[in-house]
C-alpha cells in the first residue's frame, strides 16, 4: 500500500459568494522512500495541493470540495482537527520557500526546535535541547550547540533553510513536503540543500513531495513527476520517461522554453499567451488557448486521460506519440 494516496482531490476558493475551482480531480500516490515532484507555474494549484495534504487549509477561504487523502491507511479529510494536528509535524512535515517568514523572529532557533519535540514527544526540555543540537548537526550546521542560541536573523538564508529542515525531520516523519524549498536560495546553496535532502531521505527512508517551478531541480531530484496546469495534473510519469518523451504539449513547451546553460539558440520556443487567472473560465481543455496542437474539439470537450506504458499518464486529446 502506498504511503500517501491522493484521489480525485478538488479544492475551491471562495470569492464573493462563488466557489472558484483551483484544484480539480488531482490523483497521485507516493511510496515510502520515494520522491514525487510536482511542477507547474504560479497559480496551477501545486502549493494548494500540498497545503491540503498537510491540513493547513482550515480556516481560510480555500476548502477541499471533494476527493480523498489517504495517509498510512487513514483518510485525512474526515479526521477531527485534534487528530490531524497530532499527525502534522510528527508523521508528516513541511518546509516552505521563505525560511525567514516560516521561523519566528523573536525566538531562538533552539527553542523553536524544542517546541516541536515537546509537542509530539514527552521529552524534558533538557533532553529536547540535546536532541535539537543533534538535529542541527544532522543538517550540517557548524557549531550546533552554540547555534541553538542564535536568532533567525543571525543566520544566512541557506542556514535558515537547514534549521527549517531540522525542525521538519525532528520527529522522523515518514513524509516530507517541500514547497519550493530552494527557490529563495542561490544556485550554489540550492545544490547543497538538495544534496542534504537526498542524504536525509536515504538515511531515514522518508517519502518526499517536492514542489517546484524549476524543471531542472525536479529532474535532478525526483523519481516520479506530475506536471500541473490550471488545477489539473496534465501529465505524470517517471522522471526518465517524462524528460525522454514528454507527451503533453504543455510539458514539451515548458521544457523547450527554458534557456539552456549548455547550448545557444537564436529564439526560445516560447509558449504563446499567458498563464490564466483563477477567475477565468476556460471550456474544454484549459490549455487549448495556448496550445500549438489545439483543434476545435479541445475548446469544447475536456480531455480524458490516456495511459501509456510505465505509468505514463497524459490528459490530452492529441498527446504526442513517442518517437520510434
Amino acid at each position: 500500500m502506498a504511503l500517501l494516496e491522493v484521489r480525485n482531490l478538488c479544492i475551491a476558493v471562495g470569492s464573493g459568494g462563488a466557489l472558484l475551482p483551483v484544484v480539480e480531480d488531482v490523483s497521485f500516490t507516493v511510496e515510502a522512500g520515494r520522491t514525487l515532484g510536482i511542477v507547474g507555474e504560479s497559480g496551477c494549484g501545486k502549493s494548494l495541493t500540498s497545503l491540503a495534504i498537510m491540513g493547513l487549509l482550515e480556516g481560510s477561504q480555500v476548502r477541499i470540495t471533494g476527493g480523498e487523502i489517504r495517509f498510512a491507511g487513514r483518510e485525512l479529510t474526515k479526521l477531527p482537527a485534534a487528530e490531524r494536528r497530532a499527525i502534522m509535524g510528527d508523521q508528516m512535515a513541511m518546509i516552505f520557500q521563505e525560511p525567514m517568514t516560516s521561523l519566528n523572529p523573536v525566538y531562538r532557533i533552539g527553542d523553536q526546535i524544542v517546541e516541536v519535540l515537546r509537542q509530539h514527544r514527552s521529552m524534558s526540555r533538557r533532553d529536547a535541547l540535546v536532541r535539537a543540537a543533534e538535529l542541527l548537526a544532522l543538517v550540517r550546521i557548524p557549531g550546533p550547540a552554540e547555534r541553538l542560541k542564535s536568532y533567525p536573523h543571525q543566520l544566512s538564508g541557506g542556514m535558515r533553510q537547514r534549521v527549517m529542515i531540522a525542525m521538519a525531520i525532528a520527529c522522523d516523519p515518514s513524509l516530507l513536503i517541500a514547497d519550493e524549498p530552494t527557490t529563495a536560495l542561490d544556485v550554489t546553496v540550492q545544490a547543497q540543500i538538495l544534496d542534504l535532502l537526498a542524504d536525509l531521505q536515504a538515511r531515514t527512508g522518508m517519502a518526499v513531495v517536492l514542489i517546484s517551478h524549476d524543471l531542472g531541480v525536479i529532474a535532478e531530484t525526483c523519481q516520479t513527476i506530475a506536471v500541473m496546469y490550471r488545477g489539473r495534473i496534465v501529465e505524470s510519469a517517471s522522471a526518465a520517461g517524462l524528460f525522454a518523451a514528454p507527451r503533453h504539449p504543455y510539458t514539451s513547451g515548458l521544457m523547450a522554453s527554458i534557456p539552456d546553460a549548455d547550448a545557444d539558440c537564436e529564439t526560445l520556443p516560447a509558449i504563446a499567451g499567458r498563464v490564466p487567472r483563477i477567475d477565468e473560465r476556460i471550456g474544454g481543455c484549459a490549455f487549448h488557448p495556448r496550445c500549438p496542437r489545439a483543434a476545435s474539439r479541445c475548446a469544447i470537450e475536456p480531455p480524458a486521460t490516456a495511459t501509456y506504458p510505465e505509468d505514463h499518464v497524459v490528459l490530452c486529446h492529441f498527446p504526442e506519440e513517442a518517437a520510434p
Binding site: 525536479i218 535532478e220 522522471a239 524528460f243 527554458i258 546553460a261 549548455d262
Partner: peptide
Amino acid sequence: ESTPRPDPARAG
C-alpha cells in the same frame, strides 16, 4: 556545475 539541468541522468 551547480545550475540544475532538466536531465534526470544528472541526478547525484
